[in-house]
Design a protein around this nucleic acid. Structure first.
Length: 577
DNA sequence: GCCGTTTTCGGCCCGACTGTTTTCAGTCG
């Protein structure tokens, strides 16, 4: 099992920040912890193993926080945080996860009405117990109910990155257990759905005993829900359910096929089996009459005996993949290795954590050919961007261009910006200034509630702007927090196809935007895509894999993704050539 | 609590929006 990761430490610091904000003490102290949490989460090196000096060298981490980090790494807990936890029920902090409900109102609800969970809040609203409470009017009630709905819809599900990283840690640990021949995760996680209800881990072994033993003894195991010889379920310290199924090695392929799903896909494959006089189960593909096994050990063989090529798990949703497979028309899906660069990233000039050089160096280390820096433009006031600042950055970008990486010619840097699309579809800066950028991403960051027609006009106008090359995180959704904006997407996609404006597939795990369903729709209009990390720190660059997964779920091929193109071709596209 | 420095305390991203209020607090990006 890996040691305590930076994300774990960041989570603890963030929790402390939240608790401080709820108790209503020094707001700047809470902010300091929040800042430290962000810095720790985005720090390129593992904190476990760093000395005291190296800890305080992290921006935002001083003596006090470094002490708490050290204590946490040593003991797995922090005394002061434990004390605060006792004073504030966990449910109160949970309340602040409801959109439109912050620390002040959460505390008021707790102190005045004794509310300490999201469910209790819902009941209190239904029972009209919020009426008359200072600061809570009818509109607020409505907003809170809406927020609770959003939270419930995905609140029980883990984000893709959390689940993936957890599953990788678990499979790595179990693979080392005596007698374990294979270990992998299946289920919706293998299909790379945007959120995951639970994690299905599969292992192949003759004897399941040692694996089950090791599984319940994992450090992440908080509770054993069920324990048997073929299946054991646990709940992790994060509250995620993980099922381990141990199968005989000669059933590996059938089990992987069965437990990867989706249910709809499996209904179709079992139908095909039946028509061929076969029976498909988690143990094997066998003849109905004789019971003789025809395939089981390899997933590829299962599909082959159904008359199909192996189907990538990301496609197994019964969205046409069976027909495409049968007709030999499965798409050749884009892979992470196809990406030659990243076209939407930030630095510490705005809200990123890494310096330009740190980010570019990390990009070079990833083997990219090119890399665009796209810090925020002035319309997002909080970023305090100016022409002078971005022009100074351009100088730095030009100076660094071609100097990094082992590749011949070095990493090529593009100087871009992420513009803000205002309610009328206008963006920051006049056209002649925009013409000076190599690349412009334009995104919606506010006014999420425009009526559909106005929202559609807004996006169509931005797509038609000759200086806008990519529409960033087009729906502006935040998983579990905010549904996407409402627009006539077919009209938007048509406009993008016409102006050759790429739609972003933003890889941030809480965005994954465009979502796969809209990618499928967009492809019918022949639009181009850009798969971007939207990285705000060096570790964020690794999140590209989730964007690629989402693109693949949308059947996207290499040719449709502008950042798989050569630099020459990309430049021609950016010049509108 | 951190940081920078005008070395030992004062400032800390800033503005918009919303729903509530009757002059503003809370939330958000």
């Amino acid at each position: 099992m890996a040691a305590t990761g930076n994300k774990d430490i960041a989570a603890v610091l963030q929790e402390y920040a939240d608790l401080l904000a709820i108790t209503g003490g020094d707001a700047f102290k809470a902010r300091a912890y929040e800042r430290a949490a962000r810095a720790v989460g985005g720090h390129p090196a593992e904190l476990a193993g760093l000395g005291a000096k190296a800890l305080t060298d992290i921006p935002g981490v001083g003596k006090s926080i470094a002490g708490k980090v050290a204590e946490y790494l040593r003991t797995g807990t922090v005394t002061e945080i434990d004390e605060l936890r006792e004073r504030i029920p966990a449910g109160v902090r949970e309340l602040t996860r409801v959109p439109a409900l912050g620390p002040r109102k959460a505390l008021l609800l707790h102190d005045e009405l004794g509310i300490s969970s999201v469910d209790e809040l819902a009941e209190a609203i239904e029972g009209q117990r919020l009426r008359g409470l200072k600061g809570f009017g009818p509109k607020t009630e409505e907003k809170l109910l809406h927020g609770i709905g959003l939270l419930k819809a995905s609140g029980e599900r883990a984000p893709l990155d959390t689940a993936t990283e957890l599953a990788e840690r678990i499979t790595a640990a179990l693979a080392g257990v005596e007698g374990c021949e294979r270990c992998a995760y299946a289920g919706s996680l293998r299909r790379m759905r945007e959120t995951v209800g639970d994690i299905d881990v599969l292992a192949a072994a003759q004897d399941s005993g040692p694996l089950m033993e090791a599984f319940v003894a994992l450090p992440v195991t908080a509770e054993v829900i069920a324990r048997g010889t073929t299946k054991t379920s646990i709940r992790t310290t994060d509250g995620i359910q993980v099922d381990l199924r141990v199968v005989a090695p000669d059933s590996w392929g059938a089990a992987m096929q069965y437990f990867t799903g989706s249910r709809e896909h499996n209904i179709r494959t079992r139908e095909i089996a039946r028509r061929r006089g076969l029976k498909l189960s988690e143990y094997s593909l066998s003849r109905v009459k004789s019971g003789r096994r025809v395939a089981a050990e390899r997933e590829e063989d299962v599909y082959e005996h159904l008359g199909l090529p192996w189907i990538p798990p990301v496609l197994r949703e019964d969205r046409g993949e069976i027909e495409a497979a049968r007709d030999g028309e499965l798409p050749e899906l884009v892979t992470e290795g196809d990406l030659r660069g990243d076209l939407h990233t930030h630095t510490d000039l705005t809200d990123g954590l890494g310096t330009l050089e740190e980010m570019a160096r990390a990009a070079a280390d990833r083997g990219f050919t090119y890399y665009a820096v796209t810090d925020h433009a002035p319309d997002l006031r909080m970023q305090r961007m100016t022409k002078a600042k971005i022009l100074a950055q351009r100088e730095q970008v030009r100076a660094l261009d071609g100097t990094l990486g082992k590749r011949r010619g070095g990493l090529r840097l593009l100087h871009g910006t992420e513009l803000n699309i205002d309610p009328d579809g206008e963006v920051d800066w006049p056209a002649d200034f925009l013409a000076g950028f190599d690349l412009c991403v334009a995104s919606v960051h506010s006014h999420f509630d425009l009526p559909r027609a106005a929202m559609t006009r807004r996006l169509v106008k931005a797509a038609g702007n000759p200086h806008v090359h990519v529409i960033g995180h087009p729906t502006a959704r935040m998983l579990g927090k905010r549904g996407g904006i409402d627009a006539d997407w077919d009209e938007v996609f048509e406009a993008c196809a016409h102006s050759r404006t790429a739609l972003e597939i933003n890889a941030q795990p809480h965005r994954l935007d465009l979502p796969d369903e809209l990618i499928l729709r967009a492809r019918r209009h022949g639009v181009l895509f850009s798969i971007d990390s939207d990285a705000h720190s060096v570790p964020d660059l690794a999140q590209l894999r989730y964007g690629v997964g989402t693109a693949r779920r949308g059947w996207v091929t290499k040719a449709e993704v502008i950042n798989t193109w050569t630099l020459t071709r990309l430049r021609a596209f950016l010049r509108r050539g």
